[in-house]
Design a protein around this nucleic acid. Structure first.
Lengths: 206, 206
DNA sequence: CTCCTCGGGTTGACACTGTCAAGTGATACC
DNA sequence: GGTATCACTTGACAGTGTCAACCCGAGGAG
């Protein structure tokens, strides 16, 4: 009873998400677990979607903080920082796949709750910073954005496919190697500025 | 009334999936639409999960057939075929994101229905063939599998992120360019056989 | 022809869900 | 003291998935 009810409900939902997918999550169940009536959540949230969005926002915000810490701990080399972000992201998807699905899936819209929107922006900014720092001088902003999406998509896809057991387990076991290989491939491709054709000899120019 | 009820139910569900996400799909609603009682689906399917799995199987099987046709139409050059597969996959995710989510998401397990399992295997085999044909001579099978997962993950991630409007719309508009760039990056990286460090000068050896 | 089985479908019930409407009680303010 | 507000409860309603029982027509066995 120490915390406020609003936070207790969110934390109970996050706890359940660790083991159960989001679509089966019941407002009444959460309320029961918190020892309040089935209508209590409606005082703090605008229906089920609003509640789920708030849950996703809280969870994603925490994940973003963890990821930022991992990036900081990785030192100053841009590719090391990007790699740390990628591994943090994969760890997030692996340990909390249902939360990740909720935050970036169709059950909820970023417009449903401001904290979700804010957390998504924080995470995106982190990605943008890490990818941007890996770009050679003179890379245009649109190209950087495209590379952000490519990098995110790559890590996202690999992480989600393995988290939901869609790839042979023998392959999933080597997830880290796959991820590192994909990142190497991405970053080495970035050494070429946009529009230009591949020019391996240009890699050393700052 | 011409078709069998089983197929009418599946088709009605696939139709609804084109516009509504799978988690809100109601068995009773589907049954009503087909003009039968709310219990009729249980004659043919083992509960909701079994029904959803069958729906996903039917939809994924069709998508696999379309993708295979697109690959064939692309000619004989391996990278062209892989590119055709990637674009077909992205088209599938873009036009039927909810069906894709259902087939590869946590709402359903491949073990829930044999047709889903078979369709998933067909699609995977298609991927494996296309990726395998792009590998230089002597690439080990485990390495090929890893590259399958990397390629699938990359395309899957980029497609799903844009389909669910998680990236800035200005970037999503250039989806094809992003996809082609990612594929170029992947395939050029594959010109190096596994274990060896990057060696740009070796790209021409067969 | 009668009897029986059985697959495809129906009806009815149950527990459960999200959500609307109204009520309650304490706390803060004029 | 009165009153407005906030956090919460109680009660209802429609809709859902699922279990159990029933029904009915076609097909085969005797």
């Amino acid at each position: 009873m120490s915390e406020k009810l609003e936070e207790r409900l969110l934390d109970a939902a996050l706890e359940r998400l660790k083991t159960h997918p989001a679509d089966g999550l019941s407002l009444r169940d959460i309320a029961r677990e918190a020892g309040v009536s089935h209508q209590a959540p409606y005082v703090h949230f605008s229906g089920r979607r609003g509640f789920l969005a708030a849950v996703a926002g809280r969870g994603l915000a925490r994940a973003a903080v963890e990821a930022a810490a991992a990036v900081e701990a990785a030192g100053d080399v841009p590719t090391d920082r990007l790699r740390a972000l990628a591994h943090a992201y994969v760890g997030f998807v692996q340990t909390e796949p249902h939360l990740h699905d909720l935050a970036y899936g169709p059950l909820v819209d970023k417009a449903d709750h401001p904290t979700l929107q804010a957390a998504a922006i924080d995470y995106w900014d982190l990605l943008h910073d890490c990818v941007g720092a890996c770009q050679p001088h003179g890379t245009s902003e649109p190209e950087t954005l495209r590379r952000c999406v490519t990098a995110w998509g790559t890590v996202y896809g690999i992480a989600r496919l393995t988290a939901h057991h869609q790839v042979p387990s023998s392959v999933a076991a080597g997830l880290d190697a796959i991820l590192d290989g994909a990142l190497d491939s991405l970053t080495s491709g970035w050494l070429v500025t946009d529009g230009a054709s591949p020019d391996p000899l240009g890699v050393t120019r700052s």
